[in-house]
Amino acid sequence: MQRIANERVIVQLGLLIVAVALYASTFAQSFSASDLAQSPMFFPRIILTLWIGLSVIALVQAIRKDDRATPIASWTRIGIILVAALAYTNVIGSEGFFLPSVVFALICLPAFGIRNPLLVGLFAILVPGALLLLFNHTLGMPLPTSRFSYLF
């Protein structure tokens, strides 16, 4: 059971499902031309067919070989950093650059093992602050600002 339910198999299965779903979606769209080379879906279908074929081979290899990905050293750390990075890239547009960057650094540095609050605080304020000063107030190429102030 473990041979089938490991990370490599799951990722390869995911790749296969995505490719099949995308291939199926090519038939759901209608286009003005359906001739071989004229059709907008001609090339993507070739690529998706190859992707599906390769994913099947990779999936069989993953099941047969039973080699595992490098174990994650700390699920908590990678979980925090993944979620923080995704949330960070999501909120910059609406909340501005500075505040999300400070929060991101305050979360990320301790997750990476920096325990000195002074270092964490200084880095979290100085690095985004310096970038904000450089782009918004020196180069005149503004990064997004928050809903609270046009200054940051």
Partner: peptide, 23 residues
């Protein structure tokens, strides 16, 4: 490494936003 990795994420965000200003 922690400082470098955090700085990389922030710099990448700045760089990408800077190109087209598109979130």
């Amino acid at each position: 490494e922690a400082f470098m990795m955090t700085a990389i994420v922030i710099l990448c965000a700045v760089g990408i936003y800077f190109v087209r200003g598109n979130p």
